[in-house]
Nucleic acid binder design. Structure first.
Length: 328
DNA sequence: ATGGTTTTTACTGCGTC
DNA sequence: GACGCGGTAAAAACCAT
């Protein structure tokens, strides 16, 4: 229950800017009833503008300026939802949470019976508990938004975002957040998820779209991995190949040969300790030589974010390994 | 903190277009 | 002469201890 309400609250906040503008416009039109000069109130659900004094319907069958009701997935549902109260920016939660007074007085100012007082005390306790849960939910909402933003900036597929949010939720549940930024943990979760899904992005790429710097991401990432005992093997160089190849507009053949080079290199054990990105870049370069495709080292180093020197070193090793493997 | 390893930076020389 | 490539040495970054 708490879940759905909070989600609505959060989505209301997102929408408020638009709806505020809209209602502002409407109020400019006419505020007074032509019959009795009473206040006019617009009932958007019914599409009527009604006088509060005499009940005169000033206008009917208005066009509802609100969003369309039909929603096809979760995010649309959030976007299009019309439920929720007006909000203020003044409070951290935009005034959406409840406060129970401390005075132990009822609505008329009379003191409460001791029995009632006890009851109110219990209510205060629980209200506070739910409020902090709500704060976790808001936290989550923000983090998930971040993850989504970064993931699409990096062109990561749906399932990666999915895993990233699962990781983030776990981190939240295990109280890993205190002392760490939401941003940082969210980024780390995404980084971990991308690697787990076999579509790794390098720390450099990740930090390029994150608001957090590389060091913090690395630190938080290690921490999160350790605390949640996530099992993440070192990235497979081959998983970088398709991306580099397509960034360089190389044919499928180059991609295939690059893979071959990498797998024989792996069998020879040449790859251990070397950066996967460097290996992949070198393999792509070497493969394009073999396939007579003209690509310069600097181009490869550009898309792979790796130095040319490293490419040189690696691709020599790759070719050597290949020869040792097939001494024709 | 430390030491070993890998990567980067900067520079140089060679051949080609 | 600019460019692509190869190599080297020293610095920087990284990682496990």
């Amino acid at each position: 229950m708490t879940d759905t309400t909070t989600r609505r609250y959060a989505s209301t906040r997102e929408n408020e800017r638009e709806s505020e503008e809209e209602s502002e416009e409407r109020r400019d039109e006419e505020l007074v009833c032509p019959e009795c000069a009473g206040n006019l109130v617009t009932d958007e659900e019914r599409g009527e503008t009604v006088c509060t004094e005499c009940g005169l319907v000033v206008e009917e069958d208005e066009i509802d300026p609100g969003p369309e009701w039909r929603a096809f997935d979760a995010s649309e549902k959030d976007e299009k939802s019309r439920v929720g109260a007006p909000t203020t920016n003044m409070m951290h939660d935009k005034g959406l949470s409840t406060n129970i007074g401390w005075q132990d007085k009822d609505a008329y100012g009379n003191s409460l019976s001791s029995r009632q007082r006890e009851k109110m005390q219990r209510l205060r306790t629980w209200n506070e508990r739910f409020r902090t849960r709500d704060s976790k939910e808001r936290n989550l909402k923000q983090a998930l938004g971040e993850i989504d933003r970064m993931a699409s900036a990096l062109g990561l597929p749906e399932n990666v975002r999915e895993t990233a949010s699962v990781i983030y939720r776990r981190a939240l549940d295990e109280d890993l957040l205190p002392g760490r930024s939401i941003e940082g943990v969210a980024t780390s979760a995404l980084y971990a998820a991308a690697r787990q899904a076999g579509t790794p992005r390098s720390l450099d790429e990740i930090s390029a779209v994150s608001r957090v710097d590389k060091d913090e991401i690395a630190r938080t990432y290690r921490y999160v991995v350790r605390e949640l005992s996530l099992e993440i093997q070192p990235a497979d160089p081959e998983s970088y190949v398709p991306r580099f190849a397509s960034d360089l507009d190389l044919p499928e053949e180059v991609e295939r040969r690059a893979r071959e080079l990498l797998s024989t290199a792996k069998e020879q054990g040449v790859h251990s300790g070397k950066s996967p990105v460097g290996l992949a870049a070198a393999a792509v370069y070497a493969a394009s030589l073999l396939a007579n495709e003209k690509v310069t080292q600097s181009e490869v180093s550009e898309v792979a974010n790796i130095s040319e020197v490293t490419i040189r070193n690696r691709y020599h090793e790759l070719l050597e390994a290949e020869e040792d493997f097939t001494p024709a």
